[in-house]
Measured scan of single mutants.
Amino acid sequence: MPSETPQAEVGPTGCPHRSGPHSAKGSLEKGSPEDKEAKEPLWIRPDAPSRCTWQLGRPASESPHHHTAPAKSPKILPDILKKIGDTPMVRINKIGKKFGLKCELLAKCEFFNAGGSVKDRISLRMIEDAERDGTLKPGDTIIEPTSGNTGIGLALAAAVRGYRCIIVMPEKMSSEKVDVLRALGAEIVRTPTNARFDSPESHVGVAWRLKNEIPNSHILDQYRNASNPLAHYDTTADEILQQCDGKLDMLVASVGTGGTITGIARKLKEKCPGCRIIGVDPEGSILAEPEELNQTEQTTYEVEGIGYDFIPTVLDRTVVDKWFKSNDEEAFTFARMLIAQEGLLCGGSAGSTVAVAVKAAQELQEGQRCVVILPDSVRNYMTKFLSDRWMLQKGFLKEEDLTEKKPWWWHLRVQELGLSAPLTVLPTITCGHTIEILREKGFDQAPVVDEAGVILGMVTLGNMLSSLLAGKVQPSDQVGKVIYKQFKQIRLTDTLGRLSHILEMDHFALVV
C-alpha cells in the first residue's frame, strides 16, 4: 500500500459497493488471473465517493441489488447463522422517566444476534452475496479491517462455511474481542490505534497488504460494500417497522461504517417519512454534520465500534436529520445504567446512543415513540467499562463513588512517597548505550525526554532486548525507535489509591 493515498477510480455505471474482489474501477472485475494482476490496485480507499443510485421515491424494481426479506425461524435451526436477525424490541421503562421523557422509549437489542452484535447481519450478508456472485469459493481466505464486531461476525460465518479468516484490528480494541476471535479460529493482526486510516500501518493498510500477498484472499470491505446497508434496509428496518406496527417518530443510532443508519433510515424514509433520524458520533470522530460539531482538541476516545477519521463510502449522511456528539463518560455511564436499571447487557456504544436519545427525544410528546439501536453486548468489555477499576483509572468514576473498604494508605498523596527525580535518556542515544546505562543503574525503564525536557515516551529494558533479539533494531539504532509513546501519567497530588489502580493494569506510571 502506498504512503500517498491515490484516488480510487470510478467506473461508468453500476453501484460502487459490489461485493467481491475490487477492480481499479471499484466494481467486480472478471477475466484471467493475468488481467486481474495487471488491473487490481494495491488498495482502494474506504472513503471513495459513493456511486449508489438510491433515491427517495425511486421504484424498488430499479435497484441493481439482490434483495432479501426477513424469514421466520424454524423450530430447529440448521446452523447458528440462522440465529442472525429477528432481534427483540424491548421497552426501556426507567431511564426515559428518569430523564423526563414523555414518549415511549424502545430498544432494538442487536446483541441477541448469534455473534453478539449488529455486525453479524452485514457479515453474513457480505459472505452470502460474495458466494452468490462467485467471488468467494471453498478454501478462500477472508481478510477484514475491523474494530472487532464485524470480525467476530465474519469469523463466526467463516467457521460454519469453512473459510480461512484473518482479522486486522487496532490495538485499542478489547482483549475479549481478541479472545472470541481466536476461539472462532480467526487469525488476528493488531495495528497502532493512532495510525491514520490511509497510513500503511493502519488496520485498513495492513489488511490490503495481506490481501496482495495471500492468494485467493478477499477483503469484503464493510466500508464500501453495498451488502452492509442492504442488510439493514432489507431486514433490520423491516423488523423495526413490523415490531412497531409502522408507528415510530424517531430513530437514534450510533454511527461507525454508517451501514446501520443508512440502511434503516432509507427504508424508514420510504415507509415512515415523518420519522426523524438521529445520528450519534463520538467526540474525536469526524462523521457528524455540520462540520463545526467535529471541532475539538480530542483525537482519541475509548468507546469502541463507532466514529472514524474518514467518511466511509457506505455512509449516506443525507438521510440523517440531526447529529449529536457523545463523550466517553456519558457513554459508559449510560451503558452501566442500562445494565443495572433495565437488565440490558449492552456495550458502550449503546450507552452513547441512549445518552443522546434522552436529549433528542425531549421534543417528542406522549403517545409518540423513539427507537434506539443497541449494537453489541457487554461480553466484549468485561475488563473495560464493566470494571470499576478501569473506570477509575480512566477518570470516568471517582473514588467516592465506590463504597468498598480501602487499605490505610489509600488516600495518601503520591508526594508522600518522597520520590527522587528519575533517570532520563535522550532519544538520540543508541539502544546499546541505553541498555548499558539501565543495567549500570539497576533500572528496568526510563523516560525519554528531548533537550527541552519534554517527555516523549518510555523505554524499557525488556522491550529493547526483545527488539534486538527479533532483529527489529540494532544496538547502533537510536533509542527513539523503541519508545512507548502511550503511558499513564500521575500527579504528586493524586492518591496512592489512584496509582494502585493504574499499576494493576500497566507496568509503570510516570509522575509529573
Rank of each mutant, 00 (worst) to 15 (best):
P2A: 11
S3W: 01
E4C: 12
P6L: 12
Q7C: 14
Q7D: 07
G11S: 14
G11D: 01
P12G: 07
H17K: 03
G20T: 07
P21V: 05
A24D: 11
G26A: 01
S27G: 11
S27N: 14
L28I: 12
L28K: 06
E29T: 12
S32Y: 09
K36S: 01
E37Q: 06
A38W: 04
A38C: 12
K39I: 04
K39C: 07
P41A: 07
W43H: 10
I44S: 06
R45W: 08
P46I: 10
A48Y: 07
R51G: 07
T53R: 05
Q55C: 14
Q55F: 01
L56S: 07
R58C: 06
P59S: 13
A60C: 08
A60Y: 10
S61W: 08
S61L: 07
S61N: 01
S61P: 14
E62C: 13
E62S: 14
E62N: 14
P64H: 14
H65R: 01
H66V: 10
A71G: 15
P74F: 07
K75R: 06
K75I: 04
K75S: 12
K75W: 14
I76T: 04
L77W: 05
L81V: 07
K82S: 08
I84T: 11
T87K: 10
I92T: 10
N93F: 01
N93C: 14
I95S: 04
G96Y: 05
G96I: 15
K97F: 12
F99Y: 15
L101G: 04
L101W: 06
L101D: 01
L101I: 01
K102S: 01
E104T: 01
E104S: 11
K108P: 01
F112V: 05
F112R: 01
F112C: 01
A114F: 06
A114I: 01
A114Y: 06
S117C: 01
V118A: 15
V118I: 06
R121I: 05
R121L: 01
I122L: 06
S123N: 15
I127R: 01
D129W: 11
D129E: 14
R132V: 01
D133W: 15
D133Y: 13
D133L: 15
P138C: 09
G139Y: 07
I143V: 05
E144M: 01
P145N: 01
T146N: 08
T146M: 04
G148S: 01
G148Y: 01
I152W: 01
G153C: 06
L154F: 15
L156I: 12
A157F: 01
A157K: 01
V160M: 08
R161S: 15
R161C: 13
I166Y: 06
I167V: 01
V168W: 01
P170K: 14
P170M: 06
K172H: 06
K172V: 01
K172I: 01
S174G: 05
S175P: 05
S175E: 11
K177F: 03
K177Y: 01
K177A: 04
V178R: 15
D179I: 04
L181K: 04
L181H: 06
R182P: 05
A183G: 14
L184H: 01
L184I: 13
A186L: 04
E187T: 15
R190C: 01
P192R: 10
T193C: 06
A195L: 04
A195V: 12
F197I: 12
S199C: 10
P200N: 07
P200Y: 13
E201R: 14
S202R: 05
H203F: 07
H203W: 06
V204D: 06
V204S: 05
G205P: 09
V206L: 13
A207G: 03
A207D: 05
L210S: 04
K211I: 09
S217H: 01
L220S: 04
Q222M: 04
Y223P: 01
R224W: 01
N225A: 15
A226S: 06
S227M: 09
N228I: 01
P229I: 10
A231Y: 07
A231S: 05
H232P: 01
H232L: 06
T236Y: 01
A237Y: 06
D238Q: 01
I240F: 07
Q243S: 06
C244V: 13
D245K: 01
G246F: 04
K247L: 09
L248D: 01
L248A: 06
D249G: 14
L251D: 01
L251W: 01
V252D: 10
S254Y: 03
S254T: 08
S254F: 03
S254Q: 14
V255P: 06
V255Y: 01
V255L: 07
G256F: 03
G258W: 01
I261F: 06
G263K: 03
G263N: 03
I264R: 06
I264H: 07
A265S: 10
A265T: 13
R266Y: 09
K267Y: 06
K267W: 08
K269W: 06
E270S: 05
K271W: 06
P273Y: 01
P273M: 14
R276V: 10
